[in-house]
Each structure stands twice: as C-alpha cells, then as structure tokens.
Design a protein around this nucleic acid. Structure first.
Length: 422
DNA sequence: TCTGGGGTCCTTACGCTT
DNA sequence: TCTGAAGCGTAAGGACCC
C-alpha cells in the first residue's frame, strides 16, 4: 500500500466532530529530495547531504540512507561508516530556498494564514478555508497532491486542533503520509508517549523529568503543576504541563520579527593565528551587517561566540549606545570583545558574531557624533558599505571585500603584511 | 561518534537605581 | 550615611529546534 493512500485511509474517521483547523506540513527529507530533482539518477539510492570538510555533519539524508541508521546532525564520517555506499552531496542552500518559496506559495493559495516554521515546514490555519474548500482532511490531501505535482516533492501533513498536536501528527505520518487527530483523540495519542516527545523536551530536560518519576506524557499530565515546575523551572514547567494536557493556545502567526542575525564558522583545524581569527571576525561582521541592511534592520548588542578545542563554548556580548547596521562598527566591537576573551595561542574551533536587540533601521535616529572620532565618519562608512552591497548584488558577494580579506600574490594576506586591522 | 550553522527562549547572576 | 529590598537591564550560558 502506497504511503499516500495509507495516509488518506488513516485520515478517515467515523467520529462525527468538526474537522480540526490546524495543518502542519513538513517536507520529507527536504534537502536530499531537492537534490534528487536535479539528479534523478540518484533516486532509490542512499544519499547524504553534507559538507566535505572533516568536521561536516549530515544536514539531510534520503530514507534509503536513514535505513542504515544515518540521521541529521551526525558527522559525515560516522554516517559513511554506517552506510559506506552512500553518495555525499554538498548542500546548495539557494536551491533549497527556491524550492521552499515554491511550496510556501502553494500553501498561501490555500489560506493566507501560513506560519513558516523553518525552510521546510509550516503551520496553516484552515478554519476559514474550510467553508470554501471542504473539510481540513480533504484540504490537506489536495495540498499534498499539489505539492507533489507542481514541485516533485513529497510532504507529510498533520491535521489537529492545536499546533503541537498537528506537528506531532505530521511526524507520525512521515514519510509521505497524512494523519488527522481529532479533539476527542488528543489525549489518547498523547499520554502513552515518552516525555521526550513533547516540544521543548530534549535530553537534559527529559533527564530532569525522569528523576521525578515522570516518564510519559501521561505521568506529566497527571502530576501536580508544582512537581513539573520543581523539575524543570517555571516557564518550561507551565508550558509542558499544558501541552501534556492537550492545551496549546498558540495561534498561527503570519508575521514574525527576527530577533538576531549572526554567522559562525567551525574551522577544519583549530585556529591559533590571531590574524586569521581577526580576518574571520571581519568577514563575519561584514556578512552580518549586509544581511541587516538587506532586511532594513539595525542591532544594539554585538555578541561573540568562541568554542575551544575541548568544545567548551563561551559567549560575550556588549550593548552599544546606538543601534548599528555597519560592518565596521560590528567588527570594532567584536574585535574588542575578542581581545578580552582570547589568550594568544589558544586553539579556537569555532568563532561567531551575532547582532541582537534588532529594530527596524528607519526607526533609529542616527547620531554619528557618538563615534565620529574614529578613522572615518560613520556616514562615509555607511556610503562605502551600501556601495559594496550594490556591487555584491550585481557581481556576486565574492567580487568585493575589504583589503584585509584579499590575498597578495604569493598567498600572503595583505593585512598580515601591513599589520592593519581592517 | 565526536559533535554544523542558524536561530529562539529561559534561567541565573549581577550591577545599578530607587 | 548606611543597609536591604525590589525592580530593571544586561550579560552569560544552557537547552532546544530544524
């Protein structure tokens, strides 16, 4: 029996109660499936999407690879030991973004109430669409057919009264299936599951709950709120207790405001060179700033993240007096934090820059006087960076970069030869 | 097995102000 | 002037998600 038909069969229910309003659509093995569209010769084979560096992890894998125990976030090397015949494909984020846009567009043809959760999944509120298009299980089945016929990709859909239950249902329907959970069935589905199945419960939280004897969602639902709060804290405890009792009032939100923008990089080999670390910081600061400007945002807090050889990770942040979207300003701050947090020669595994406390750039009054004593007035830097944005948009991001990111003939960095910081 | 990159949210600690 | 409590913002880190 084919998965789609099986899904449709499972959708049928003799219970005469209104069809649930929330759909959770989750694309199946999304990155890997998009790769198969352009490389059909790989169909039916174990395919892993992941980088080629020694520290790369699996970002997606076909179900043929998953059958060998391969899963996402696993080191590519470990995945190849489990499945030596697997074909490794480098990720191509732009094609995944394009595919994502197409499927999200199809979702919005069903209802304007679409909340993308990530590149490959979304919640849909079809409570209004039901009047025009029929019961929600019918809407979901048609949507799955359309996604397949127009993009060549399969997806799994959960239909339920709440977001969390819809997400749970899509997970249980995978791959290429559909599952409807009606109001009267919610607790029956929920209570036998291990606590780990709850949204927001990872390995650590599960450990805390289990220490209190809370092994299943049913245990959690039946125990007093105070016990759950004692185990995992106020906020998480309250939320989990509600979820365990089938309560989830969150609505499908169509607009979301980004809270932070950042970049980070894990080096193939731990980096000890100060010049290289500075160069990486500068590159990341510029990338973050370009993304802020493209989104029309500015941020007030600059955060630096460092991970050392033993995997210990520190983060340090500093709040500016004025929000910024300038690479130079972000770099200056990140570098200053870096100099206070890093001891010369310490091997660094990962370095990252993030800008937080974002606000719409237009809402900010510009006060160049606050740091006008620096090498170049801020407006000059702004003009220069905006010009770089335009050139990058036209000729590609690799065509323009600060002098310190250029390599001189023979391979030596100009920054190193000249001793400049940016 | 040896752990990516992009995020969000929460808890705890601490300094400052009232 | 000193002290403690309360409230707030900031910083750091942990946990989690995809």
């Amino acid at each position: 029996m084919n998965r789609a038909v099986e899904g449709a069969a499972r959708a049928g229910s003799p219970v005469a109660e209104p069809s649930p309003p929330i759909l959770h659509v989750d694309m199946d093995a999304f990155f890997a499936s998009v790769e198969l569209l352009s490389r059909p010769e790989l169909r039916g084979k174990p395919v892993i999407v992941g980088g080629s560096s020694p520290r790369s992890v699996v970002t997606s894998a076909t179900y043929e690879a998953r059958a060998f125990g391969v899963h996402s976030a696993m080191p590519v090397g470990a995945a190849l030991r489990l499945c030596p015949r697997a074909i490794v494909v480098s990720p191509n984020m732009q094609s995944y973004r394009d595919a994502s846009k197409r499927v999200m567009g199809l979702f919005r043809e069903v209802t304007p109430l679409v909340e993308p959760l990530s590149i490959d999944e979304a919640f849909l509120d079809v409570s209004g669409a039901r009047r025009l298009l029929g019961e929600s299980d019918v809407i979901a089945a048609r949507l799955r057919e359309r996604v397949l016929s127009e993009t060549g990709l399969t997806c799994s859909v959960g239909v339920a009264p709440t977001k969390y239950m819809a997400k749970l249902a899509s997970g249980r329907a995978k791959p290429d299936g559909m599952l409807v959970i009606r109001e009267s069935e919610v607790l029956g589905y929920l209570h036998p599951l291990p606590v780990r199945a709850l949204w927001g419960v990872g390995a650590k939280t599960a450990e805390h709950l289990e220490r209190y004897g809370l092994m299943t969602v049913g245990d959690l639902a039946a125990s007093p709120l105070g016990t759950v709060v004692a185990a995992v804290g106020e906020a998480a405890g309250t939320r989990l207790h509600e979820l365990a009792n089938g309560i989830d009032d969150r609505r499908v939100e169509t607009v979301s405001q980004e809270k932070s923008v950042g970049h980070e990089r894990t080096f193939d080999l731990d980096e000890t060179s100060e010049q290289s670390l500075r160069r990486e910081l500068l590159q990341q600061s510029n990338r973050v700033a370009a993304r802020l400007r493209a989104a029309g945002l500015s941020g007030r807090t600059v955060a630096l993240k460092l991970r050392f050889s033993d995997f210990t990770t520190i983060s340090r942040s500093r709040t500016l007096t004025e929000p910024t979207d300038l690479g130079k300003r972000i770099y200056d701050e990140a570098l200053s934090i870096f100099e206070g947090a890093w001891s010369v020669g310490t091997p660094v595994r990962l370095i990252g820059v993030r800008v937080e406390q974002l606000a719409v750039a237009g809402s900010i009054t510009h006060q160049p006087a606050l740091w006008a004593d620096e090498v170049t007035p801020s407006e000059g830097w702004r003009d220069a960076e905006v010009t770089l944005d335009r050139v990058a948009a036209r000729f590609g991001a690799d065509m323009v970069r600060p002098a310190s990111l250029m390599r001189a003939p023979g391979g030596a960095e100009i920054a190193e030869r000249n001793g400049v910081r940016d």
